[in-house]
Amino acid sequence: MSGNGNAAATAEENSPKMRVIRVGTRKSQLARIQTDSVVATLKASYPGLQFEIIAMSTTGDKILDTALSKIGEKSLFTKELEHALEKNEVDLVVHSLKDLPTVLPPGFTIGAICKRENPHDAVVFHPKFVGKTLETLPEKSVVGTSSLRRAAQLQRKFPHLEFRSIRGNLNTRLRKLDEQQEFSAIILATAGLQRMGWHNRVGQILHPEECMYAVGQGALGVEVRAKDQDILDLVGVLHDPETLLRCIAERAFLRHLEGGCSVPVAVHTAMKDGQLYLTGGVWSLDGSDSIQETMQATIHVPAQHEDGPEDDPQLVGITARNIPRGPQLAAQNLGISLANLLLSKGAKNILDVARQLNDAH
């Protein structure tokens, strides 16, 4: 009898209710805020589980004197976190989706994509230029951005401005803007500013005609071990179906173009009346040469937790077992079709030249 009692006690200790789920994140304040929001949602869904947040620095956090596009290494903000995932030191990792490459290392998958916040870019102005827009900034004003995508589009749109690289986390960039006289304004992701509670610093939100956004911008991705079915089931509740389908289309477009950090590629997606609209573009580094096109596809946005595919093969690095396969494939095909259209119009040449120029500098 006593033996059975011990077995029952052991089973209770090993039951999922007692389990601590370890969540990996970057150390920056924004990353911690984003991770806290994901953990809060998981806690609400699984009140019996405990969650421990483990923060670590990544290569991208450490190399702050070089433009991201020049470092010449993929997975700048993800490699150390993936290493911890691989060694079973954490069970899942919360990322900004735009930091996750469209091809993940073997053994990993994006197990959830959370509801997207505003994906557009924002302009934050130096205190002396508050009330201005990019259009009304004085001639030769210097605007800071760490992104080739932003610089290429904005140089084309605002030729009277000069664009220079600015690195560091959000706090560091804002301090550089406010305390030094080098920059009249800087460009940042609206979602990051909003998550930090800095709505009052948003001086201008850039519309798609001015600057399309990065693939996955404004959404959070939760990376897990691809074979860890328990954790895949656990994080599945975080999937937002519309965000998922938009981001599958965007990531398929980028992957098929073979774009990345070192080339200016941008997108804009919208879901309306059962249609998914995808606009994508590529630019030369100075913005003088560009190709942009829009395509659409009829896609039914499923309700969360309709029964999805059981075999769960990944699409552009994403596993969404609780979302039907048909809409996911339709979104992926839309991204591939748009990429093929741009490639047929000469996108590869623009991107190759951009890559060579970026590598040469």
Rank of each mutant, 00 (worst) to 15 (best):
V20K: 14
R22N: 10
G24K: 01
G24M: 06
G24E: 01
R26D: 01
L30I: 01
A31F: 01
A31H: 01
R32A: 08
I33Q: 08
Q34H: 05
D36M: 14
D36P: 01
D36L: 09
K43R: 10
P47H: 10
G48W: 10
G48I: 09
F51P: 12
E52V: 12
E52D: 11
E52K: 05
I53M: 08
A55S: 12
A55R: 10
A55H: 12
M56A: 12
S57G: 09
T59R: 08
G60K: 01
D61K: 05
K62A: 11
K62R: 08
I63E: 01
D65Q: 07
T66A: 14
T66W: 08
E73W: 04
K74Q: 15
L76M: 12
F77L: 01
T78G: 11
K79C: 10
E80T: 11
E80N: 06
E80D: 14
A84H: 08
A84L: 07
A84N: 07
A84P: 06
L85G: 01
N88A: 10
E89V: 11
V90D: 01
H95V: 09
L97D: 01
K98I: 04
D99A: 04
L100Y: 12
F108R: 14
F108Q: 15
T109C: 12
A112V: 07
I113W: 05
I113V: 01
C114S: 12
K115S: 14
P119G: 05
A122M: 08
A122H: 04
V123F: 04
V124P: 03
V124M: 13
V124N: 04
H126K: 13
P127N: 01
K128I: 12
K128S: 09
K128Y: 09
V130A: 11
V130N: 12
V130T: 09
K132S: 12
K132N: 14
L134H: 01
E135G: 09
T136A: 08
L137V: 11
P138E: 12
P138A: 13
V143P: 03
S147E: 04
L148C: 09
A151H: 11
A151P: 04
A152E: 05
Q155S: 13
Q155W: 11
K157N: 13
K157Q: 12
K157P: 08
F158W: 13
L161W: 07
L161H: 11
E162Y: 15
E162I: 12
E162P: 01
F163S: 08
R164P: 07
I166V: 06
I166S: 07
R167P: 04
R167C: 04
G168D: 01
R173P: 01
R173C: 01
R173D: 01
L177I: 07
E179T: 11
Q180C: 15
Q181R: 13
E182K: 07
I186H: 07
I186G: 05
I186W: 01
I187E: 03
I187K: 01
L188S: 06
A189V: 01
A189E: 03
A189L: 01
T190V: 11
T190M: 03
A191F: 04
L193Q: 07
Q194Y: 05
Q194L: 09
R195C: 05
N200K: 14
I205T: 11
L206F: 12
H207Y: 14
P208L: 10
P208Y: 14
E210N: 13
C211M: 15
A214P: 08
V215L: 07
Q217R: 01
G218F: 01
G218H: 01
G218K: 01
A219N: 01
L220W: 05
V222C: 10
V222P: 01
E223F: 01
V224Y: 04
V224L: 15
R225M: 12
K227G: 04
K227M: 06
I231F: 01
L232C: 11
L238N: 01
L238H: 01
H239D: 14
T243L: 01
T243C: 01
L244S: 14
I248E: 01
A249H: 01
L254S: 06
H256L: 09
H256W: 15
C261N: 01
C261M: 01
S262M: 01
V263F: 08
V265N: 01
A266S: 01
V267W: 01
H268V: 14
H268Q: 14
H268A: 14
T269F: 01
D273A: 04
G274C: 04
Q275M: 15
Q275C: 01
Y277L: 12
Y277V: 04
Y277Q: 01
L278H: 03
G281W: 10
V282S: 05
V282I: 06
W283S: 13
S284D: 05
S284A: 15
D286I: 15
G287V: 15
S288L: 13
S288T: 09
E293C: 07
M295K: 12
I299R: 08
P302D: 12
A303W: 01
Q304E: 13
E306L: 14
P309W: 05
D311M: 14
D311A: 15
P313V: 13
Q314L: 13
L315N: 04
G317R: 03
I318P: 01
A320V: 10
I323F: 10
P327Q: 15
L329R: 15
Q332D: 07
N340R: 08
N340V: 04
L341V: 10
L341C: 07
L341E: 11
N349H: 05
I350M: 09
D352P: 14
V353Q: 15
V353L: 06
Q356P: 15
Q356T: 03
N358S: 15
